[in-house]
């Protein structure tokens, strides 16, 4: 039963992937821009969910890995003329390596400091980029070669989103899922069952960070120019948090609903950036209080006949 529903989910994902692959031929430029952003956001939210859902750790460090991916991609492409796919693979390695490196500090005290630790890490990286001239300093760096055209970038984003979604499916529908949920629900009891909690959490953190770093690389390539304030800005973390809380923490469809909602809200209030963020804040407060499982959870509660699909979460 578990395997068949997992296969069905993979089937749906692949079908959606194939369908969207042809989007550039019928969607206009604006539509493609929006779709690109939704895909990047979807990747970020899926990765966040993977971490929170499997470890219970709440990260505010999305921007840290977005920025890292952006700088690694640009650095490799500018300095060594690395092709984009290889550059993105290196982004993943760098993201995972950084996660592994900082985990001893961040996993202390069972998560109390994880959130602020990720926040500080993003700030630390930003300050390094600002101050080290080799990284372009405060003004940032340009991509020397021409970025691929939007339809190609869209395909990159689509592949990345597919990888993130498949990763979530793999974690939610396979043997790994019981291990992850066990660690999240009761670390001590899980250890007594032979599960290694630290390694499990670290694995989820590395995977999640690698995915975010790839998304950062794709996003940066599309921009063509990056600077530390934007790439390491808190805005990424705010958007991710908005998405998962609006969509529903740990719910399979949460990231998609959240990404659509946040992108739509951003478009609707594009001319009022401050009001946009403030309104997002109000929505968060209201949802945390009254709909802790987000829009998807709320709809599920309204319609009890829809099958509840909880993710690795």
């Amino acid at each position: 039963m578990k395997t068949s529903s997992g296969l069905a989910e993979v089937g749906v994902l692949l079908a959606a992937f194939v369908l969207l692959w042809f989007a550039p031929s019928f969607a206009g430029d604006y539509g493609l821009q929006i779709a690109f952003r939704v895909l990047i956001y979807l990747t970020l939210a899926e990765s966040w969910n993977l971490l929170a859902g499997s470890t219970g750790l709440v990260s505010l460090g999305t921007s840290c890995f977005v920025g890292l991916g952006a700088y690694v991609a640009f650095g490799l492409m500018n300095a060594f003329d690395v092709p984009l796919p290889l550059g993105l693979a290196c982004c993943a390695v760098a993201g995972g390596a950084l996660a592994a490196l900082v985990s001893p500090a961040l996993f202390r005290l069972r998560g109390l400091y994880f959130t602020v630790g990720t926040l500080a890490l993003a700030e630390l990286l930003r300050l390094i980029m600002v101050n080290v001239s080799a990284f372009g300093g405060a003004s940032g760096i340009f991509l020397q070669k021409d970025p691929p055209p939007l339809p190609v970038l869209f395909h990159y984003a689509l592949v990345v989103a597919l990888i993130a979604s498949l990763a979530i499916t793999a974690c939610a529908r396979s043997r790994i899922s019981v291990i992850l949920r066990a660690v999240r629900d009761d670390e001590d009891a899980a250890a007594q069952m032979g599960v290694r909690p630290y390694r499990t959490k670290l694995g989820a953190f590395i995977l999640s960070s690698a995915l975010v770093a790839i998304a950062g690389g794709v996003q940066a390539t599309k921009l063509g120019a990056i600077e530390p304030y934007g790439m390491f800005g808190l805005q990424w973390s705010i958007d991710v948090l908005s998405m998962v809380i609006i969509g529903g923490v740990g719910l399979r469809l949460g990231p998609l609903v959240g990404a659509l909602f946040v992108v739509a809200l951003g478009e609707a209030l594009a001319d009022y950036p401050e009001a946009h963020v403030a309104i997002a804040g109000v929505i968060l407060i209201v949802l945390i209080r009254f709909a802790p499982r987000g829009v998807v959870g709320f709809v599920e509660n309204l319609a009890p006949f829809t099958q509840k699909k909880r993710v690795a979460a």
Partner: peptide, 27 residues
């Protein structure tokens, strides 16, 4: 009202308050 829901809900709420305040200052 979130006291029974563990520290994450309160922390996220204060995060939302932070972004509201910050943008309210600008406005």
């Amino acid at each position: 009202p979130l006291a029974e829901r563990g520290p994450e809900a309160q922390m996220m709420t204060m995060f939302a308050v932070a972004i509201i305040l910050e943008n309210a200052f600008v406005l």
